[in-house]
């Protein structure tokens, strides 16, 4: 049988439905998250000077480079354009102290090694995008913290002296809280309200991108509004830290003993890497659970471990370890928090 209607048949594409797709792509997600981090980066660079920018730039460039290199060596397609390596570098840089930009002692190799550990080992060796178990930027930071414990905990005063390279070192607010207590912290910042204000805008010592809670909140809300993240992890994470540090975080200034319900939840929420971690790192799709109920448990777990380290641990801050530990549990949480399929009833269970 001949063709029924001899027409200039276009060469028709045949493929499986659906034939239309949404315009959200992996690279758009990565670049959007990077943009959402911009306010916090801006505040970091403003308070810690150009050296902060150099650190972040070093991490980004070396992360992208290491992704390219490992892809080539492993014979895999090069996917540096998807923005994932850029974002890892950006997050790693924002999680480092600006003091690493130092030639004497020479520390410039530290962020580069961190990028290598983050991208080449944590991500690419585990199979690349989508297959890594741990948050790459946080493994990079954890590696550096363990390898260069001293250099990684030297923090400069946020002087906002834009061109100055000479800087005074100081402890982070959580460090002061842990070593010398609340009274000392208030003494340093003048008043308690000034302490909160400085925490909000970012004029306090810490890693480059973690000091301004307000800038991070703006970025986080932007991602929530765009529905690139949901409330499940950040809200439960932050709320758990607030509740637990309020209950168990208070101490008697005289004896140093724990006093129940005397902690400062607001200070704990605004401090350290919590805002950065809760909105930008714990929400990493790849290393967190997929099911929403599992994400709630994940967020609570992150909050509990963070609080435990802050109150009882040797480190003043615990967000990084909390997220990394909970990364291990993500697949288990997904497995145990089963979804209820549509119409599913217990008695009809297969």
């Amino acid at each position: 049988m001949a063709v029924m209607n001899e027409k200039e048949h276009a060469r028709l594409i045949v493929s499986v439905s659906p034939h239309i797709r949404s315009d959200v792509s992996v690279s758009r997600i990565m670049w959007t998250v990077s943009i959402a981090l911009f306010p916090a980066l801006l505040m970091g660079v403003y308070f810690f000077g150009p050296r902060a920018l150099f650190i972040v730039a070093t991490c980004i460039v070396s992360s992208v480079f290491f992704e390219y290199l490992t892809a080539k060596v492993m014979g895999r397609p090069v996917t540096i354009n998807d923005g994932s390596a850029f974002l890892t570098g950006l997050l790693l840089g924002m999680n480092l102290p600006s003091s690493l930009w130092s030639f004497s002692p020479f520390l410039i190799h530290v962020p580069i090694i961190g990028s290598f550990v983050a991208v080449a080992i944590t991500k690419m060796l585990f199979g690349g995008l989508g297959y890594n178990i741990f948050n790459p930027a946080l493994i990079g930071r954890a590696f550096l913290l363990i390898s260069w414990p001293r250099a990684m905990t030297i923090f400069y005063k946020p002087t906002a002296a834009f061109l100055g390279f000479d800087a005074q070192t100081t402890a982070t607010p959580l460090g002061i809280l842990k070593e010398d207590g609340m009274n000392k912290l208030i003494e340093v910042f003048g008043t308690k309200s000034n302490l909160y204000l400085m925490k909000l805008i970012g004029q306090n010592a810490g890693s480059i991108g973690e000091t301004s809670a307000l800038a991070l909140l703006i970025g986080g809300l932007y991602l929530l509004a765009k529905r690139y993240i949901t409330w499940h992890i950040p809200v439960t994470f932050i709320a758990t830290v607030a509740v637990v540090t309020w209950i168990f975080g208070g101490t008697d200034p005289a004896t140093g003993k724990m006093v129940l319900f005397a902690g400062d939840p607001l200070l704990n929420v605004l401090s350290g890497g919590l805002m950065l971690g809760a909105f930008f790192m714990a929400t990493d799709y790849v290393t967190g659970p997929t099911l929403r109920n599992a994400q709630i448990l994940f967020g609570i777990g992150c909050g509990l471990i963070t609080s435990l380290i802050r109150i009882k641990g040797g480190f003043p801050e615990g967000v990084m370890f909390a997220i990394l530990l909970m990364n291990c549990f993500a697949p288990l949480l997904d497995r145990y928090v089963k979804r209820k399929p549509f119409g599913f009833r217990k008695e009809a269970a297969r």
Binding site: V26, I29, L129, G130, T230, V286, G288, L291, R292, F342
Partner: peptide, 16 residues
């Protein structure tokens, strides 16, 4: 690309 476990499909699946 590989699945990045973003949960979007989980949210939209009408069959849960």
């Amino acid at each position: 690309k590989p699945c990045i476990r973003c949960s979007r499909c989980v949210d939209v699946c009408p069959m849960g």
